[in-house]
Simulated scan of single mutants.
Amino acid sequence: MPASRSRFRPPPGSPRRARRLLPGLAAAAVALAVAFLVHGLVPVLPAMTLAVVLGVLTANLPWAGAFTAGRGRPGLDFAGKHLMRGGIVVLGLKVSVMDVLGLGWLALVLITGVVAASFGGTYLISRLFRLPPVTALLVATGFSICGASAIGAMAAVRRIKHVDTVLPVALVTLCGTLAIGALPLLIHPLQLTAPVFGAWTGASVHDVGQVVATAQTAGTAALGIAVVVKLTRVLLLAPVVAIAGAHQRLARQPDDSPESGQVRPPVIPLFVLGFIAMVGLRSTDWLSDGWLEAGAVLQDILLGAALFGLGSAVRIRALLLTGGRALLAALASWLLIAVLGLGAAVLIAG
């Protein structure tokens, strides 16, 4: 009898399920408030990056680690999975097709080429460092498109376990944070103009918030083109996960048989369709600035809580023992993407 009770999971929406989720979600809310406060005091530190860092700190402090591994875990896992999907949907409100087309066809081809080459190159580098295929896929997705959001989307469409997203999220957050400090130091040695630096930042830095934090160091001209180039990469999230979903359906797996009772994953998950719908809505210019600002706040809340949840699963000791090869692979991939992005930026804005 005790064993059967331990396997029982309350149905979604039940009061018991809500009580199990509440401690972790409350912790995520508190952490998110702290992240926004620190970001307000030190704008160069993106709130999303701070959310991941706070999650990692919480998981590794003796007095808090027991909570994140125990009572808080259900709610933190819920945030890392479901709130992440909601944040990806709302992320679509940042992307206007008209802004993307305004870059010109040459820029669109170059950015698409950078994403494709970054994805393939990062996957190959990860495999050369003997990372598992699942880890290599998630790292390639996060590095080439839009950081942790892309990792969450790919994990959902390929039905990758939540625990397997922890290391890729940690790597993409680390390298994106390094970019905030490293790229501005190269402006003068490389003699980059503000537009070229902005395009380089948008083409090579992972998360949207990290792009803003990096590009704004070179002024508004750099920031403007950086955001548009970055959002063009974000727009490619939909076709990339659609291709991954199609591949997942076509791949023959032992558990795909009718006897298994398992349903094959959709080609395009519902939350990706929601992302596409939000892109379409944003592109109509029907929404006022107030609605767009509200959407941006909601996106930050959802993604910030999700990133805290993912960060709270990172155990630094285990990461140091098992993540050495992964760290080297991530740094090599970061260098590859920086070189590819710089070449594209010179052609786009040079």
Score class of each variant (00 low, 15 high):
R20M: 15
P269C: 12
V172Y: 03
M278Q: 05
R158S: 09
G202D: 02
A213Q: 12
G261S: 06
S126W: 13
G113M: 10
I180S: 06
G86M: 09
F143I: 10
A51G: 01
P23C: 10
R127H: 08
G55C: 13
S144I: 03
H39G: 15
T141E: 01
K81F: 07
P184I: 04
V30R: 04
A148Y: 01
P184W: 00
L342T: 05
G309S: 09
G40N: 15
L192R: 07
V42H: 15
V279M: 00
I180V: 14
L292R: 12
S144L: 04
A51R: 07
G120T: 06
A313K: 10
T193A: 09
G309V: 06
A3Q: 11
L106F: 07
R20F: 11
M98A: 09
G13K: 07
C146P: 03
V53H: 00
L91W: 04
V267G: 01
S333L: 05
D255R: 01
G24N: 11
F275I: 04
L138Q: 03
P184S: 08
V52C: 05
T214V: 09
F78Q: 05
Q248S: 13
L287C: 07
G104M: 10
A242W: 04
P269Q: 12
A170S: 10
A107K: 14
T322K: 13
G198A: 10
I243E: 03
P195V: 03
S126K: 13
V139P: 03
S144V: 07
W334C: 13
V241H: 03
V211D: 03
G245T: 12
G341N: 05
P62Q: 08
A170W: 06
G219R: 12
A156C: 07
V211T: 02
V90P: 00
C175N: 06
S6N: 08
A170D: 04
V166L: 09
G309P: 05
A27P: 01
M98Q: 08
G142D: 08
G142V: 14
T173N: 13
V211F: 05
L131S: 06
L235G: 05
R282A: 00
L21Q: 04
L124K: 00
F271I: 01
G72I: 05
V34G: 12
D285T: 07
I268A: 04
V346G: 01
L110F: 01
V100K: 04
L138K: 08
A182N: 06
P184Q: 07
P254E: 14
I187R: 13
A3N: 05
S288E: 12
L235P: 04
P12R: 11
A47N: 10
L303Q: 01
G75K: 10
D300V: 06
I151G: 02
V297W: 12
L93Y: 09
G350N: 02
S14R: 02
M1A: 11
P74N: 13
P269H: 11
G295R: 06
A251P: 03
S14C: 10
G295K: 08
